[in-house]
């Protein structure tokens, strides 16, 4: 038996619905149709009345989730694409994220963002929005890179008493497989050493983890040992694990599929530079998408985002410096 990243997300939601009567799912086409990506396949039939089609109203979807959370429910909102969370942005960052601080009323909502690029998806179905949400206080931002994390972190997202932005990567939906669902998981907020090494640290998350692991594999044949850190959640960001890795390797390359200005790679480098400058043997580097909208055509798209090839080049340059 094998289970995909997407199936793990469906299974986590099925378990959350089965285990906790406070959980319901609200989003566009999530009901009988089972969601644009089938992440809620058969859930409406399995859990009648608890998997609800919404109008195309992202603001009102999140608003309703906040209201339901105030009343003690634990809603899961599916945005059809991360890109379409922008019309719901106001409710997320100005309302859900401020509610506990302002009123001491917890706001346990999970917002699933099908994120990141796939070939042919273009400017409005490819975005990685984790950094813009992480900028705001009052939210947790998860970026699972493995089938196991997609499952266990989504269950944890539903259990957490705060708004969680769950960035699930569409590129991983069908291709990433595991033998079985996990029965235990690392704590939320802890990064994972996805591969140990001593020459260079690559910090990555979500789909970029797999590009980084491919580079580590490739460079191992050249005698270079790359350590790969999977951030898992970008807020909170596990600075300790990153710093410990840099202490071992002395070199840092951060890779993110999102745009370069601000963002996760900038944040990681800022923290290492301010708190661990002395650990560095070379200037820390980062690799991001190009600073343009995300192109439609595969020829352009595959160059727009970091890939194993561009990461390998950056890694080799950093190892020489």
């Amino acid at each position: 038996m094998s289970i995909t990243y997407l199936e793990a997300i469906r299974e986590a939601q099925a378990k959350a619905l089965a285990d906790d009567p406070r959980v319901f799912i609200y989003g566009q086409d999530v009901g009988a149709f089972g969601g644009a990506f089938k992440a809620t396949k058969n859930l409406a039939q399995q859990f009648p009345g608890r998997v609800i089609d919404s109008p195309i109203s992202e603001d009102a979807m999140v608003g309703a989730a906040i209201g339901a959370a105030i009343e003690g429910m634990r809603p899961i909102i599916e945005m059809q694409f991360a890109d379409f969370s922008t019309p719901g942005f106001n409710q997320i960052i100005n309302h859900a994220a401020t509610l506990y601080w302002r009123t001491q009323t917890p706001c346990p909502i999970t917002i699933r963002l099908p994120s990141g690029g796939t070939s042919g998806s273009g400017p409005f179905h490819s975005q990685s929005m984790e950094a813009i949400y992480a900028h705001y206080p009052g939210v947790i931002v998860m970026t699972p890179a493995t089938v196991e994390d997609a499952y266990s972190m989504l269950l944890e997202a539903v259990a957490i008493d705060d708004p969680v932005i769950f960035c699930e990567h569409k590129y991983l939906y069908y291709h990433l497989k595991a033998d079985k669902l996990p029965t235990e998981a690392m704590p939320v907020g802890k990064a994972r050493i996805a591969r140990a090494g001593r020459d260079l640290t690559i910090v990555a998350y979500s789909a970029m983890l797999h590009e980084a692991l491919a580079v580590a594999e490739e460079l191992a044949t050249e005698g270079t040992e790359i350590e790969v850190v999977d951030l898992r959640t970008i807020k909170p960001l596990d600075t300790d694990t990153v710093m410990a890795s840099v202490a071992r390797t002395g070199r840092l390359l951060c890779v993110g599929e999102a745009w370069p200005w601000g963002g996760v790679t900038a944040e990681v480098i800022a923290r290492v530079a301010t708190e661990g400058f002395g650990l560095l043997d070379a200037p820390p580097q980062r690799l991001n998408a190009k600073d343009t909208p995300i192109p439609y055509h595969p020829n352009l798209w595959s160059t727009h985002r970091p890939t194993a090839r561009s990461i390998a080049t950056a890694a080799r340059n950093l190892l020489r410096s």
Partner: peptide
């Protein structure tokens, strides 16, 4: 913004 939140409490 508050209207849909009221909706959510009612749901």
């Amino acid at each position: 913004a508050m209207i849909s939140v009221v909706n959510g409490t009612l749901m």
